[in-house]
Design a protein around this nucleic acid. Structure first.
Length: 207
DNA sequence: CACCAGGCAAGTA
DNA sequence: TACTTGCATGGT
């Protein structure tokens, strides 16, 4: 918790997730897999410009056409399939009603999401926290790297290990999880890039 | 030029 | 089970 306070004091609120609607957030969560957000923003912008950023449009677009639209986000053929798999899942399980999916309960909805091909733990948890506003802490490459580099977790720690360790010391609070993860990403992007040793003047240097 | 970015699944031994 | 590889664009 003291780490959270230090990051918030240093960077201020991050106003996450970048995206205007739960649907856009969900799409962004898939497109940002192992990809710079700037490239994702370009892909989403393409969809918006052509009025394609809707459930029905994306689920009914021919896969190769969708792929071309999201090309800047990288792995574009793969991600077109993953997006449509996700939409097909919501169509099948919730009759295509996004709100029904977003309102479904933990932990069942998380298990179902993880069963969708192309949706792993980080993508699932990002959707659950940022689109559905469920109290799920998102662990990503930055979280892992930052905590390992500061000796707060083992380098070999897995997704669930980190998630457990993190949330065990925190209240189950959606705005807190939201801001905390966003702050870790901010720190990672700005001062804790891969390959560099401990950054000088890091807000976490005395933890 | 090499390396990195808000992962995930499939293949190999 | 434990590695390794494919997927791909755009910025530094």
């Amino acid at each position: 918790m003291a780490i959270y306070e230090a990051l918030l004091a240093h960077f201020g609120p991050q106003h996450w997730w970048p995206g205007d609607s739960p649907f856009e957030i969900m799409v962004g969560a898939v497109l940002t897999q192992n990809t710079n957000w700037q490239n994702v923003a370009a892909a989403i912008s393409n969809l918006k410009e052509e009025g394609l950023l809707s459930f029905v449009a994306l689920e009914s677009l021919p896969p190769e056409v969708l792929a071309e639209k999201i090309r800047p986000s990288g792995y574009y053929r793969l991600k077109a399939g993953r997006l449509q798999s996700l939409l097909a899942f919501i169509r099948a399980e919730y009759d295509g009603e996004l709100d029904a999916f977003l309102g479904d309960r933990l932990p069942g909805v998380r298990e179902k999401l993880l069963a969708v091909k192309g949706i792993g733990p980080e993508t699932a948890d990002s959707i659950l926290l940022y689109a559905a506003e469920k109290p799920v802490f998102v662990v990503d490459a930055y979280t892992h790297r930052i905590l390992a580099r500061h000796g707060l977790i083992f380098e070999e720690a897995g997704y669930h290990d980190i998630q457990e360790q993190f949330t065990s010391g925190l209240p189950e609070d959606v705005p807190l999880y939201n801001e905390y993860h966003a702050l870790l990403v901010r720190l990672g992007k700005e001062r804790c890039r891969k390959g560099a040793p401990l950054c000088a003047g890091c807000p976490l240097e005395h933890f």
